Lab assay of single mutants.
Amino acid sequence: CHSECLGNCSQPDDPTKCVACRNFYLDGRCVETCPPPYYHFQDWRCVNFSFCQDLHHKCKNSRRQGCHQYVIHNNKCIPECPSGYTMNSSNLLCTPCLGPCPKVCHLLEGEKTIDSVTSAQELRGCTVINGSLIINIRGGNNLAAELEANLGLIEEISGYLKIRRSYALVSLSFFRKLRLIRGETLEIGNYSFYALDNQNLRQLWDWSKHNLTITQGKLFFHYNPKLCLSEIHKMEEVSGTKGRQERNDIALKTNGDQASCENELLKFSYIRTSFDKILLRWEPYWPPDFRDLLGFMLFYKEAPYQNVTEFDGQDACGSNSWTVVDIDPPLRSNDPKSQNHPGWLMRGLKPWTQYAIFVKTLVTFSDERRTYGAKSDIIYVQTDATNPSVPLDPISVSNSSSQIILKWKPPSDPNGNITHYLVFWERQAEDSELFELDYCLKGLKLPSRTWSPPFESEDSQKHNQSEYEDSAGECCSCPKTDSQILKELEESSFRKTFEDYLHNVVFVPRKT
């Protein structure tokens, strides 16, 4: 048989008469490798580009789960590009990614509803959504962080984005990388972005840091009482949809009607710091009717980097990364020049730590249904340095008659930039024990000054392991946590139920 035959053949030295091919099969003959313009397919066939392209389009058009959109890589027609490569849609070739590779997620039936953290986790790592997304989240724990972890990498949506009755959302900033909504599939009414009845939605994105392009379709905003109209108009300008909307697409009466839409800028007039305090004062603000001013709200939190936005980490279910302080308005003076500047002394802060701070007014709604208010920009203030805590785990070892090696770990709280350490030492008198000992005694162990690591005695271990207080009263049991108490109650309830079950099964009433 021919060298490319495997198993047997019907005619000697003829690659077209093989029972099976050793390498690849091409047009009725066995070959060692697939010549151009053919590609290896499933490690035994040679196919042309049209064959591989037909497989790709067949799966793409069917949208069946589990099928493969075949691509070409290293002269092979394979189910998908290997790690580190992405497909070129024009020629199906796998090309190296520039940075992290995109991950295209194809949605069944063309859309997916995100109504819980669990459903959001199914899209973790996706960068391109081939379909439409509907966000409908009523509640949950730590929602802002969970949504950002699972949806934060999405850069492109081919269909539309719909935010509907998501009472738990305060902001859409968890879509931190969303840059493009194509609108290839539109919501009824030709809408590519749809926001309806979101009672706590206050911000779409921080438009000073976020760009969003909507290729096709219109915007729809109705019944978002805490979303200011200025935020919607800003989205029109940034996304390129200005002029597409009709009169009733953006409701003037049901958007922002319960919001404090600040239209003035508060400026800080005085800032002073110490290692654990920050004193702030800002310019006074009074609405047209000074009785509408209820006070100020001061927001602050630790910020290692200057990239904080107002609604980071917030949701309507209680999660809030900001510390909020309510401040009463100052006494009002008739003389504008003698107006008191409101302020606040922030206490209990960490030394040498940068804080993000902003302040906003708290006002009631005027009778004319106009909203007044003022808010400052987010500023960054760093507390002063102070003395560091003591170095940890000092170790001293003498390696000769004239040297001592000293080692330690950095302090747990540096409280500033540590530039150097101060080492103090003092000579001590020799131990009298060394002169009084009889060095001729056998088995004498000389006193040693070398360091030995501390260890816990058996008594201390027994005390720590004991669940009861000892007789001397030195140790006591740790208080039980809520989960331990709940577990004990469940076990007790189970024992009672099981005992009742045994009584009912074992003891049967005697027939009379």
Results as ranks from 00 to 15, higher is better:
Tyr305Glu: 04
Lys267Pro: 05
Leu147Thr: 02
Ser192Arg: 01
Arg138Pro: 12
Lys242Arg: 09
Asp257Glu: 05
Lys409Leu: 09
Ala251Tyr: 11
His233Cys: 14
Tyr285Glu: 01
Ile232Met: 08
Leu180Asp: 13
Pro351Phe: 06
Val381Phe: 01
Arg370Thr: 12
Asn142Val: 07
Asp367Arg: 04
Ser119Lys: 01
Lys350Ala: 09
Leu265Pro: 14
Phe174Tyr: 14
Phe193Met: 12
Phe220Met: 15
Tyr355Glu: 00
Phe220Gly: 15
Ser401Ala: 14
Cys126His: 00
Ser319Gln: 05
Ser239Ile: 13
Lys234Gln: 12
Ser274Gln: 07
Gly140Lys: 04
Ser171Cys: 05
Arg347His: 07
Thr386Phe: 13
Phe174Thr: 04
Glu148Trp: 10
Leu229Lys: 10
Ser208Met: 07
Asn141Asp: 06
Tyr194Trp: 12
Arg244Gln: 10
Leu279Met: 10
Glu109Ile: 06
Gly373His: 02
Lys301His: 08
Glu246Tyr: 11
Gly125Val: 08
Glu236Phe: 13
Lys226Phe: 07
Leu280Phe: 01
Tyr191Glu: 06
Lys350Gln: 14
Leu169Ile: 10
Arg244Asp: 08
Ser401Gln: 07
Tyr305Ile: 06
Ile395Lys: 11
Gly318Val: 06
Glu231Arg: 10
Asn399Ser: 11
Tyr372Asn: 11
Gly125Ser: 08
Thr215Val: 09
Thr353Lys: 10
Gly373Ala: 02
Leu143Arg: 10
Leu196Asp: 03
Lys350Gly: 03
Ala356Ser: 08
Ile163Lys: 02
Asn141Phe: 09
Cys261Tyr: 02
Arg281Tyr: 14
Pro410Thr: 13
Val308Arg: 04
Gly373Met: 02
Cys228Gln: 05
Tyr300Asn: 08
Arg281Cys: 15
Leu169Pro: 07
Trp344Tyr: 03
Lys226Met: 10
Gln121His: 14
Ile379Gly: 02
Ser338His: 06
Arg176Thr: 12
Leu123Asn: 01
Gln258Gly: 03
Arg291Ala: 05
Thr383Val: 03
Lys253Asn: 09
His210Thr: 01
Arg281Met: 09
Leu345Gln: 12
Trp286Ser: 07
Gln403Ala: 02
Thr309Pro: 05
Phe221Ser: 06
Thr113Ala: 09
Gln403Val: 03
Gly256Pro: 04
Leu280Ser: 01
Lys409Pro: 04
Thr273Trp: 13
Asn190Ile: 15
Arg332Pro: 09
Asn340His: 10
Leu265Gln: 13
Glu156Val: 10
Ala195Glu: 00
Val381Cys: 02
Gly183Lys: 01
Ile135Val: 05
Pro288Asn: 11
Gln339Arg: 09
Ser166Trp: 01
Glu184Ile: 10
Ala316Leu: 11
Phe175Leu: 10
Thr273Asp: 01
Lys103Met: 04
Leu201Gln: 02
Trp282Leu: 04
Arg138Ser: 15
Leu227Ala: 02
Val117Phe: 13
Lys226His: 04
Asn136His: 10
Ser333Arg: 09
Gln382Trp: 07
Val381Gln: 14
Ile214Tyr: 02
Asp315Val: 08
Glu184Gln: 12
Leu123Ser: 01
Arg369Gln: 06
Ala259Ile: 15
Val381Ile: 13
Ser173Cys: 09
Ala374Thr: 06
Ser338Gln: 09
Pro411Val: 10
Asn340Gln: 14
Val117Thr: 03
Asp197Thr: 12
Lys226Arg: 08
Phe221Arg: 00
Thr215Ile: 14
Gln121Ile: 15
Ile157Met: 08
Tyr191Met: 05
Leu151Val: 15
Ile405Ser: 14
Gly240Trp: 15
Pro329His: 02
Ala195Lys: 00
Leu331Ala: 14
Gly189Val: 14
Gln403Lys: 14
Leu219Met: 12
Gly110Arg: 07
Gly348Trp: 03
Asn334Ile: 05
Glu246Val: 11
Gln203Leu: 05
Glu283His: 07
Lys267His: 06
Asp289Gln: 03
Asn255Met: 08
Glu302Leu: 09
Glu302Arg: 04
Thr185Gln: 09
Lys162Tyr: 11
Gly318Gln: 04
Ser158Lys: 10
Leu178Arg: 00
Glu155Ala: 05
Asp276Gly: 09
Val363Phe: 06
Val104Arg: 04
Val324Ser: 08
Glu302Asn: 09
Asn211Met: 12
Gln216Ser: 10
Thr118Glu: 11
Tyr167Leu: 09
Arg179Ser: 07
Ser389Thr: 13
Phe193Gly: 00
Gly318Leu: 14
Ile188Lys: 08
Ser166Glu: 01
Val128Glu: 01
Ile154Gly: 00
Lys301Trp: 05
Asn307Trp: 09
Gly217Lys: 03
Gly343Leu: 08
Thr113Glu: 11
Gln121Gly: 02
Leu293Tyr: 03
Lys162Leu: 12
Gln203Arg: 11
Gln203Tyr: 14
Leu345Ile: 13
Arg182Gln: 03
Ile357Glu: 00
Ile181Lys: 00
Lys267Ser: 11
Glu155Val: 15
Leu252Asn: 12
Ile134Ser: 12
Lys407Ala: 00
Asn340Phe: 11
Trp205Ile: 02
